[in-house]
């Protein structure tokens, strides 16, 4: 994979998350009924950071959960080897909550479809919203993000790689191209 461009640096990611945190609070008029759920893997640290930002702004903490969508994927019958399943950890009841799903990149929308089903199996939230650091287009399902860090027009041959301190020991967003 060839690196084509860097579209976000450390500061860019920080500012985008701060803005999203403000938008979440504004749209939901506070943090009263709010909970964040990060989608493995890179949605997890992003959700934790968003919760931290919200706490700094509003002074109240929101519950944070982790979702593994492997068992809900729609392509399991086409894969030769079953992918590893990790833990789903949602240590609060989702019923009647406003859930903000957090992921690094929204692309085809299939991951979000799986995540919506996974959350529904945990209870009946009042509302589910979606936050993504990068929206790269090419949706295959009628799904959209409520909060977007950056819209990036891409071609299907490209790969958007979000690199986060907690997982990758660096902090930037790259566009890679298959050679």
């Amino acid at each position: 994979m060839r690196q084509k461009a860097q579209i976000m640096d450390r500061e860019g990611i920080r500012r985008a998350l701060t803005r999203i945190a403000h938008e979440v609070i504004e749209r939901n008029q506070g943090t009263g009924n709010l909970a964040l759920i990060g989608i493995r893997r890179r949605g997890v640290p992003l959700a934790a950071r968003l919760a931290e930002r919200i706490r700094e702004i509003e002074g109240s903490s929101v519950p944070v959960g982790t979702l593994d969508i492997t068992l809900y994927r729609d392509d399991l019958t086409t894969l030769a080897q079953q992918p590893l399943v990790h833990r789903t950890e949602v240590p609060f009841p989702v019923t009647d909550k406003t859930i903000v799903l957090v992921d690094d990149v929204i692309y085809t929308g299939r991951t979000i479809r799986a995540a919506l089903d996974a959350i529904m199996d945990l209870g009946r939230p009042r509302q589910i919203q979606l936050a993504a650091l990068i929206d790269r287009g090419h949706r295959e399902l009628p799904i959209r993000a409520d909060y977007v860090g950056k819209n990036v027009p891409t071609s299907r041959r490209e790969v958007v790689s979000v690199r986060l301190q907690e997982i990758d020991a660096e902090e930037r967003v790259l566009i890679l191209e298959k050679e």
Partner: peptide, 26 residues
């Protein structure tokens, strides 16, 4: 180890109110 690791998230599902995931549908 792979089987034991996979059983960890499976156990979480068996503790849910709705003990059902769609993985092996069909």
């Amino acid at each position: 180890a792979r089987i034991l690791d996979t059983a960890v998230p499976m156990k979480e599902i068996t503790g849910r109110q709705i003990k059902k995931v769609p993985t092996l549908r069909g």
